[in-house]
Write a protein that binds this DNA or RNA. Structure first.
Lengths: 111, 111
DNA sequence: AGTCGTTATATTTACTGAGATATAACGACT
DNA sequence: AGTCGTTATATCTCAGTAAATATAACGACT
């Protein structure tokens, strides 16, 4: 039986959490569905929770992460900005390289 | 305003968490005080919670992490085994190198 | 004007997890 | 035999969080 090492990373802005794994998943679901309601459903999350998460991200980030449209034929929708996409991408690459780094570290140790 | 990246790491054994930051702190407090009761108090944690934590660590680790004595003049006590000390030490060194790694990664990015 | 699916927000309800409390057992020492 | 501070464990209470529910506003299109 071997030990495994795991990690969670997150980005903070102004002492408050800006982006973590859950929020990244939500942003990706928004990009996939084009709607906050559908994104929440696809993650089996309440609309309210999803909304508070994206609101927190949007209000703390240096630039807007999502744009919302209300009303209209389709009812409206939510979309990721280019800046949002870059946030998601760099988060995921850093996260994966962190996993790799930790796997190497634990295999170097004598546990 | 700059983004900061943070992380939590933990070690799993057999699919269950073995050691994380909180447990490491508790083990260090045990080493410092020689008693689970005092360690719990020093961390403002209930005895019950502290006990369940060390019990979980002790039962999942490859070798015993603590030894306990019940009764006697001093009432008893809890001590860290050499293996427990090595667990704590490697956890902390990996944790700190992980922080360093992440700081470098985020400063490389364009956020 | 009416419909529709959405964003946005408040309020109420349910439940899990943490804390508080209680109790037993232990054994070196006086 | 009695004391003392500890380990060990069960049970009960409560708060804070998550979920469910309700409601308003919006605007393109028919």
């Amino acid at each position: 039986m071997k030990y495994k090492i795991k990690s969670r990373i997150w980005i903070e802005a102004d002492g408050h959490i800006l982006l973590g794994e859950g929020r990244v998943n939500l942003l990706k679901a928004i990009e996939a569905t084009g709607s906050l309601t559908k994104a929440a459903k696809s993650l089996k999350m309440s609309y309210k929770k999803a909304w508070s998460l994206v609101d927190a991200v949007n209000s703390r980030a240096k630039e807007p992460v999502i744009t919302t449209a209300v009303g209209g034929k389709s009812g409206g929708g939510t979309a990721l900005t280019p800046y949002g996409r870059s946030l998601v991408e760099t988060f995921e690459t850093i996260n994966e390289s962190c996993w790799k780094f930790l796997d190497e570290e634990i295999s170097k140790s004598k546990l």
